[in-house]
Computed example of a mutant assay.
Amino acid sequence: MSLTIPIILGTVREGRQGLRAARFMMRRLTEAGHAAPLVDPAELQLPLLQRMYKEYPAGAAPEPLERLAQLYRRADAFVVVSAEYNHSIPPALSNTLDHFLEEYFWRPSGIVCYSAGRYGGVRAAMQLRAMLGELGTPSIPSLLPIPEIGKALDQEGHASDARLDQSATRFIAELVWYAEALRRQRAEGTPY
């Protein structure tokens, strides 16, 4: 079953390494037969959150928010790609996520975290896990950490080590399992 799984990139920094991880996941999901559009905060240029998408009158939200709302409503799951900034998530990621709420409901998320160092961004992933649950897109149990991202992935997102590809295969299988299960349940109705 083909799914729509947006890849939400979390950084706008110059020379951002997260594009490597996002491209890696986009390619792996596409190869598995799924749609994996990139949600890039650098391209979206969202303002700092002053009001959520749902707080705009119908049809009055800025165009990037309307476009994201349409994509998120079609989504079956989300992959969130996060760096670790000061043991936390990047501010651009929080800003991108916080513009929406109901659009995330009843859809699982998977966390791909990375860092230049050996921990692969897992400290940020723990905070992100709590945030995603609160947004209504709980993360699957597995993470896909990418330590030393500059060595692990090239500019186009190709892995230098087969172990990362193997980990991604398991991670995607788990995310797809949750996405298909929740898709069936959404079709039958949600609690509210």
Rank of each mutant, 00 (worst) to 15 (best):
N86E: 06
I8C: 07
N95D: 12
P6H: 12
L175C: 04
V12L: 04
R23V: 01
E180C: 05
L164N: 09
S142M: 15
L128R: 09
H34D: 13
K54G: 12
H99R: 08
E180T: 07
D98V: 06
Y56C: 08
P90C: 04
S139T: 09
Y85Q: 10
A173N: 14
P47N: 10
A35D: 14
T4H: 10
R170Q: 08
A181F: 04
E84Y: 08
H99L: 06
F171R: 03
G150T: 00
A152Q: 01
E188S: 10
A36M: 11
T11I: 07
A152W: 00
Y85D: 04
R107D: 02
R118V: 11
G136K: 11
D76E: 04
P37F: 10
R20V: 02
D154F: 07
A124Q: 02
G157T: 08
D154G: 10
G10H: 03
L164C: 10
F171Y: 15
S167M: 11
T190Y: 10
L135E: 12
A162M: 00
P191F: 14
E84V: 09
A32I: 01
F78P: 08
A75N: 12
Y104C: 14
E55V: 01
P64N: 00
T190L: 14
Q155C: 00
R186V: 13
C113S: 15
T190M: 12
E55D: 13
I111V: 12
T137F: 06
F78Q: 15
T169A: 12
G189K: 05
S2Y: 09
Q185N: 06
G59I: 09
P108I: 03
A83M: 04
M126P: 00
E102C: 05
Q155T: 02
L135W: 09
L65Y: 03
A32K: 04
I149E: 02
L93M: 06
G15P: 07
V12E: 13
L97N: 03
R184Y: 06
D40K: 11
N86V: 12
T137I: 08
A116V: 07
M52V: 07
I8Q: 05
L49P: 06
L68N: 10
A92L: 02
L132G: 13
A75V: 14
P41W: 05
C113K: 03
I7E: 04
Q185E: 13
P91T: 11
L38F: 08
L46I: 11
G18P: 04
A179G: 13
G59Y: 09
S115D: 11
A83G: 11
T169L: 04
A124R: 02
M126R: 14
L3M: 11
P108K: 02
V12P: 01
A61Y: 00
H158P: 01
R186N: 02
L97F: 06
M126A: 14
F171K: 00
L71F: 08
A92D: 08
V12S: 10
K151Q: 13
A173R: 13
I140S: 08
Y85M: 02
F78D: 12
L44G: 02
N86A: 15
L19M: 11
L132A: 11
E66S: 10
V12A: 00
R107Q: 14
S115G: 15
L128Y: 08
I140H: 08
